[in-house]
Simulated assay, not measured.
Amino acid sequence: MSPMSSDAQQFQEWQEFQQWKQLQQQHSSGDLPHEKENVILTASTVRGSLIGMAQAQVSANLTNADGTGIKAQPISFVVTSTNQEFGRATTDSNGDANLDSGSNISDPQLMASAAFSGYTAVYHGNATYNPAKARGKYIVGLG
């Protein structure tokens, strides 16, 4: 073994030690990225009306794995078949997000698509929580 390869090996070991030391410092200071928490998102089956202005109250519920509501999180509501967003709502202290779809779906074709395919509640996640989706259904009546 030549002295050059020994020096190179020592240098590599020193670099690995420095990296290990840096990781230990990050770990002790809490700088390491933490694993995001999984969430449970559910969407309701809602009854809608086609008389007058088409309308329905769509809703979703966002909880952690223990079933505790997660508040102040944005939920997007999209038509399942077209993936077109028709509104957003923010969760309350129980994790509930509610939206009057009638005031947001004024296009008759979009309402027909939503009535046929349902809607999807979408939570995009954040630094703490993983994203989630849940599908809801419309039951459309005439009155």
Rank of each mutant, 00 (worst) to 15 (best):
K71T: 06
T42Y: 01
H27F: 05
M1W: 03
V140H: 02
K36E: 04
L142R: 13
N61W: 01
L110Y: 08
G118F: 04
G69I: 10
G30T: 05
G69W: 14
M111S: 08
S106P: 07
G143K: 04
V39L: 02
L110R: 12
G141R: 10
T128D: 14
N61P: 02
Q26E: 12
V79C: 11
I51H: 09
N83Q: 04
I105P: 06
I105R: 07
P131T: 15
G48L: 00
K133S: 15
Q55T: 15
Q9H: 08
L32F: 06
A112F: 03
A72L: 06
N104R: 13
Q57D: 13
N126V: 07
Q9Y: 14
V140T: 06
A115P: 00
G52P: 06
S2D: 04
G48E: 03
T90I: 07
Q15R: 14
A115W: 05
G48Q: 04
S106T: 13
T42G: 05
W20F: 05
A65T: 12
Y123I: 07
A54R: 11
V122S: 08
P74I: 03
D7S: 09
Q55R: 14
G87F: 03
L23Y: 06
A60K: 00
K21G: 00
A115V: 13
I105V: 12
T63E: 04
N98C: 02
M53F: 10
Q26D: 13
T128W: 05
V79D: 09
M4D: 14
V79Y: 07
Y123V: 14
G95Q: 06
Y123A: 09
